[in-house]
Write a protein that binds this DNA or RNA. Structure first.
Lengths: 197, 197
DNA sequence: AAACTGAACATTTTGTTGATTGTTCATCAT
DNA sequence: ATGATGAACAATCAACAAAATGTTCAGTTT
């Protein structure tokens, strides 16, 4: 079995596991079921993934591409940096809120990964900063935003300030409308700043 | 028994319950224990509080006075509105983080109230906005901050942007130093705004 | 009549048991 | 030798019984 075959099997495992995760949730999906779906033995799964959690993580990683595409397309929009920045946050809020709202199963998966693999969350935040930084850089070059020597840090701080909207479920605030309005106001605050000009 | 006696008994109950809450936590404190401490019957407690959770809420409310005093004293500091605003957030971050860090029991209490009585959380946030608004108003009058027609909404948005620092335990970020640095940066972001002047 | 009690009730928590599940590894098949 | 298996193992979960707890209220005390 060469490396290509191995990769192909990994993909098949991810697909089978994903189907189960979506239908029955992370906890109620068993390794033997995944194996049975693929007509292989339970033990064999461990030649491709070190643990069930790693399957979940790889599955989540694969499905990041949706978010990735969304962020990329917003970053490329023919709009001002300010508009793209707010659109970025609006889109992510809607995306995660809706996702979690309509699929308890996906939420369970996300919770399990977040709990057992905190580093995964950090990787995702770091990845988002790539897109944020790009928008910020544009804005600065266009003369819209004030110059800043550490754009990545700036992106980090924007993430801090919008944390509430990234993990809406944590703050038991269950109305998307409220969150949307709060996001508008918060972004406005960030944009305008408080200091009189 | 007149109203004063009744109030006095309420206070005694709160004191007894508080001792138990602090030592053993909310869940491990029973109504019969509280009653026994006061040499009264279990049933009698219910003539003073409708439920155990209401005792917890009243206890928390009584201990808000610490926070209240802190916010009041910071609001009255002979410093600029900007400095008071950041000091306000610094103090609350330190206060809640340290409190939770050194007493798992208090955290448990807070969680129970937050879960079963979401309205309590909102009341506290609304109360904080009184102090925030006062600082903002000062800042605007001094010409430091830009005028704003809805100061309470402005305070709300600042709360949104600093939510991460108000409930640090929710975001599994366990280093106070990191949080402090992030808070500085976030406040800076809020102050300066992004738009070039 | 008003203040209070403690047994009664329903609900929740705890403890325990057996079954299930994630993971490993000696073994078999190719 | 390499790929794969499934029984074995320890850890976790599910289900049920037992105990404890929050709450109520008929009844007692003052």
């Amino acid at each position: 079995m060469d490396m290509d075959d191995k990769e192909q099997t990994r993909q098949k495992i991810l697909a089978a596991a994903g189907r189960r995760f979506q239908h029955y949730g992370y906890a109620k999906t068993t390794m033997s079921e995944i194996a049975a779906d693929l007509k292989m033995s339970t033990g064999n799964l461990y030649r491709f993934f070190p643990s069930k959690l790693d399957i979940a993580e790889a599955y989540a990683l694969a499905h990041e591409s949706d978010e990735e595409a969304m962020m990329a397309s917003i970053g490329a929009l023919p709009k001002s940096a300010a508009e793209r920045l707010i659109e970025h946050h609006r889109a992510l809020l809607d995306y995660t809120f809706t996702m979690i709202d309509e699929s308890q199963k996906i939420f369970e998966l996300a919770q399990a990964i977040g709990r057992e693999r905190p580093s995964y969350v950090n990787r995702r935040l770091a990845n988002e900063r790539v897109y944020l930084s790009s928008i910020l850089k544009d804005g600065i070059e266009d003369g819209l935003f004030a110059p800043n020597e550490d754009i990545n840090r700036l992106a980090e701080m924007i993430q801090c300030a919008t944390m509430k909207f990234r993990y809406p479920q944590l703050h038991n605030c269950f109305s998307l409308d409220t969150l949307r309005r709060e996001l508008e106001g918060t972004m406005d605050l960030i944009f305008k700043g408080l200091i009189k000009r």
